[in-house]
């Protein structure tokens, strides 16, 4: 891990920006949710990378091991993943209702159908 240095963070930023790019560019709401999920996972990797200790092992105590990785980011991210899927489900449920109301999941089509209705 020592030779990598900041490489983890750069990959994280790349993922973060690809998630953001999908959220901005795509007009499809489902694709936007997938983009948000990519963004979210990149933050998870960011936290876990911060908690990594060179030469350490997973934080499960054993007699002959003295160096452990940082368990605190693991705890935060563990709960964040499950909360993430629950909120993703909420977003998808909203999309389903939008589809029922406007018969489309594409932003542009929703706007045009809304304008024609007004």
């Amino acid at each position: 891990m020592s030779t990598i240095g900041l490489y983890n963070y750069w990959i994280v930023f790349f993922l973060m920006m690809s998630g953001l790019y999908v959220v901005i560019v795509s007009t499809n709401l489902i694709k936007k949710i997938i983009g948000l999920n990519i963004f979210q996972t990149s933050v998870f990797i960011f936290y876990i990378s911060i908690g990594k200790v060179r030469g350490g092992t997973a934080p499960i105590l054993a007699d002959d091991i003295t160096l452990y990785s940082n368990p605190l980011p693991h705890v935060l991210i563990l709960t964040a993943i499950v909360v993430g899927v629950a909120t993703t489900a909420l977003g998808l449920a909203l999309i389903v209702r939008i589809h029922t109301a406007f018969n489309s999941v594409d932003e542009e089509q929703i706007y045009t159908s809304k304008d024609s209705r007004d």
Partner: peptide
């Protein structure tokens, strides 16, 4: 308590 795992993983 003893290995990787816990309520969140088990529930999923």
């Amino acid at each position: 308590d003893y290995g990787p795992g816990g309520g969140f993983q088990a529930g999923v």
